[in-house]
């Protein structure tokens, strides 16, 4: 399936990526190539096949409800591009 520039723009927005207009043409042709390859999947007869999300069919181990994690705030905030008053800072969020 070909993927046009408009779709690239929509998907890029969903993924929070900025794709400039000149890059958009290039990207749309690359993605179309990839999707053309991926479209081989449509040949597969999967009518009665259940999806397989994990290679091993095992189940989730469960953790005891016990506090094990220390306070790492100081360490974490040092990694932050912007922090103040113990919080990570971002441009103002308007709901």
């Amino acid at each position: 399936m070909a993927i046009d520039q408009e779709t690239v723009a929509r998907v890029a927005h969903l993924a929070r990526l900025h794709i400039s207009e000149e890059d958009g043409a290039e990207m749309s042709s690359r993605l179309s190539d990839i999707l053309a390859m991926v479209d081989q999947l449509q040949q597969a007869d999967v009518a009665d096949v259940a999806p397989l999300a994990h290679p091993l069919e095992v189940t989730q181990p469960l953790r005891k409800d016990e506090v094990t994690e220390p306070d790492i705030r100081e360490q974490a905030l040092k990694l932050a591009p912007a922090a103040e008053g113990g919080c990570f800072l971002v441009p103002r969020v308007i709901e």
Partner: peptide, 8 residues
Amino acid sequence: RAQKVRRL
């Protein structure tokens, strides 16, 4: 579909 093919 890819997950189904994965099972195959």
